[in-house]
């Protein structure tokens, strides 16, 4: 549901911005001249980007953004963005770089310049009560499992894994139903589940299965910024090579996801 909304918004934005002029000057030069890099990050997506006790931006992505600033030898400035405006901010030049939990899609690539390789990824997993005895997707057979109406993995959960699906319209209803014991687990995006597991009220819950239907996240620069793109591409490769993202995941209490582990193996091998 979230993804659908986001991709529809992205598509609409894409149509709006097709005629927008592309940046002419090299943003790398501009950043160095200014002495500051402006990065769009999330402030509402724990643990990827959120606010600390004193209102400072912390999380995995702000830390990565600071690393970029350090490599460029400049200061950093954070602009909080949300899913609905992050690509516009980049297009309009209000931010130089966007690291904001954005799933990489073909529609979005038309709007912004998503840097390869992808730096992160999220897929489908379960938020399950501890001790229900589920360790593989196949264990869901005939169990009451909560979901969000319209999510693309609902059918698979029912058809392939045989779960007895109970789907609500929003996450708040689902989480309430889960806490009331109306279902044993919630099938949803693993990044959302990771965020919940950080909160004390979900201490009795876990993510018991392997993530499926993985889709990569991309950080992005504006179209036409080829120098900056090349620079960021190398930075991401270096993050993967040195295992920086895995270290950050551990620092923020997230079990390193298969994607980051795989990328680390790939890039550290050659």
């Amino acid at each position: 549901m979230l993804r659908t909304t986001v991709s529809v918004t992205a598509l609409a934005l894409g149509c709006l911005l097709v005629g927008a002029p592309e940046a002419q000057a090299d943003v790398m030069e501009a950043i160095k001249e200014r002495g500051t890099i402006v990065v769009g990050i999330r402030a509402d997506y724990r643990p990827y980007g959120y606010l600390g006790p004193n209102g400072e931006n912390i999380g995995i992505e702000p830390t990565l953004a600071r690393d970029v600033a350090e490599r460029l030898g400049v200061d950093y400035e954070f602009v909080p963005v949300v899913a609905a405006n992050r690509m516009e901010f980049l297009q309009q030049g209000r931010i130089d770089l966007m690291i904001a939990t954005m799933t990489d899609t073909a529609e979005r690539r038309r709007v912004v310049n998503i840097v390869e390789p992808n730096y992160y990824s999220s897929g489908t997993n379960l938020l399950a009560r501890k001790g229900i005895g589920v360790s593989a997707w196949e264990d869901l057979r005939d169990r009451p499992i909560c979901a969000i109406q319209g999510a693309f993995y609902n059918r698979k959960t029912q058809e392939e894994f045989g779960a007895n699906l109970i789907a609500f319209t929003g996450t708040a209803e689902v989480l309430t139903a889960l806490q009331q014991g109306r279902c044993q687990a919630f099938v949803y995006d693993d990044s959302f589940i990771q965020a919940r597991l950080q909160e004390p009220e979900w201490a009795d819950y876990e993510m018991p299965v392997e993530t499926i239907d993985d889709a990569p996240w991309g950080l992005a620069v504006a179209h036409g910024e080829d120098n900056f793109y090349a620079f960021m591409s190398e930075v991401i490769e270096d993050w993967h090579r040195t295992g920086k993202i895995i270290a950050l995941e551990e620092e923020y209490g997230v079990d390193p996801i298969p994607f980051t582990r795989r990328m680390h193996e790939e890039f550290s091998a050659n």
């Binding site: 659908t4 319209g150 693309f152 609902n154 059918r155 609500f168």
Partner: peptide, 18 residues
């Protein structure tokens, strides 16, 4: 459909999403 009773609208909603 709001409380996840699988009646026709609930089912149709899921089918048209898929």
């Amino acid at each position: 459909y709001a409380i996840a009773v699988p009646e026709m609208l609930y089912v149709a909603n899921q089918i048209w999403s898929d």
